[in-house]
């Protein structure tokens, strides 16, 4: 034993340092050690319903050559836009802007209808942003379809998708419990208006309201086609819109969903506005000459309680002529 006190102090100091380092190692090790090397997935977020209580089960069909006027007429019949959108609301508008086509090819929602919806919401005192995650180059789609001009001149704002806007969200109960979607815009908004157009679709027969929510998804969505009808019904569960404005001013009757030739398009001169996605999609399917039982997702959606196929079961159903 060395009785030197210096030595003892040094011993204690060195032992203390070594113990500290060991303890630090152990702490870091236990903090980061994980037997399960599969990274923990982020929990899927829930999108609330955008439906205004008390407005369920409504649909108004307005026929007329001026689609913007028809939208106004239908909204009037529903009790005015004020019933759905209040001052200070943040309204997200989702048109169909999936392809980089000029508007008259019918592959995208007409600028007239989209612009009118934006104008109505702004007149009601809301802030309006328009979003879509198209198949083609986003800016190109908005510019070429005329929606960019229509939205901006109506006082709205186009929100181009970017990677930062996406997150995993809960979708439906049939095929896709959760998926990458434009979460941030959906979280920003407290009202959501779908403005689909009437198109034939190579796989689901028709592309209308519920199929239009596909444009809110990201990720490997090209896999969804393997069970498209179930996925479309899931999309109906995913979004409960404040309002749907189905643009039937012209109908893409062939070569859907892209179209590409004027001969694929017919004038439709009709819009359907309401809150029942299934009823509106049934109406749209009829415009394209499909009976409701030919379109599998309508039945699936009705069974899920998303709406009714039979117009007679709606709380409010009216047809108006909109000729100025």
């Amino acid at each position: 034993m060395n009785p030197d006190p210096h030595h003892r102090r040094m011993f204690i100091r060195r032992m203390g340092t070594a113990t500290g380092v060991a303890a630090g190692t152990a702490a870091i090790g236990s903090l980061f050690h994980n037997r399960n090397l599969v990274p923990a997935g982020e929990e899927a977020k829930t999108i609330p319903s955008f439906l205004v209580p008390g407005t369920e089960g409504m649909m108004v069909v307005a026929e007329g050559p001026d689609p913007a006027f028809a939208v106004r007429a239908a909204l009037q019949e529903l009790g005015g836009i004020g019933r759905f959108v209040k001052a200070g609301d943040r309204v997200l508008v989702k048109p169909n802007c999936a392809f980089d086509r000029p508007a008259h090819f019918g592959a995208t929602t007409s600028p007239a209808v989209t612009g009118e919806v934006v104008r109505q919401c702004i007149a009601a005192g809301a802030e309006v942003r328009v979003i879509d995650n198209p198949i083609n180059h986003p800016e190109g789609c908005f510019v070429k379809s005329g929606l960019m001009d229509a939205v901006q001149s109506a006082g709205g704002e186009v929100w181009l998708p970017s990677a930062a806007l996406f997150a995993r969200v809960k979708v439906g109960s049939l095929r896709i419990p959760d998926w990458e979607a434009l979460y941030r815009p959906l979280a920003w908004a407290n009202k959501l208006i779908g403005v689909p157009t009437v198109k034939s679709h190579n796989l689901s027969g028709v592309s209308l309201t519920m199929k239009n929510w596909y444009g809110l998804l990201g990720g490997p969505r090209n896999r969804l086609h393997q069970a498209l009808h179930e996925v479309v019904a899931d999309l109906g569960q995913f979004i409960r819109p404040t309002l749907v404005v189905l643009d039937g001013s012209r109908l893409l009757v062939a070569n859907g969903p892209t179209g590409g030739s004027p001969s694929d398009v017919r004038p439709g001169d009709v819009v359907a506005v309401g809150t029942d996605q299934v009823a509106i999609d049934t109406f749209g399917a009829r415009l394209l000459g499909h009976a409701p039982d030919e379109i599998a997702f309508l039945d699936l959606a009705a069974k899920l309680g998303l709406g009714v196929v039979d117009e007679a079961q709606l709380k409010l159903f009216r047809k108006v002529r909109a000729v100025s």
Binding site: H104, A254, S263
Partner: peptide
């Protein structure tokens, strides 16, 4: 951008 033909080709 012209309007669509109301009849098929």
């Amino acid at each position: 951008a012209a309007s669509a033909l109301p009849v098929p080709g």
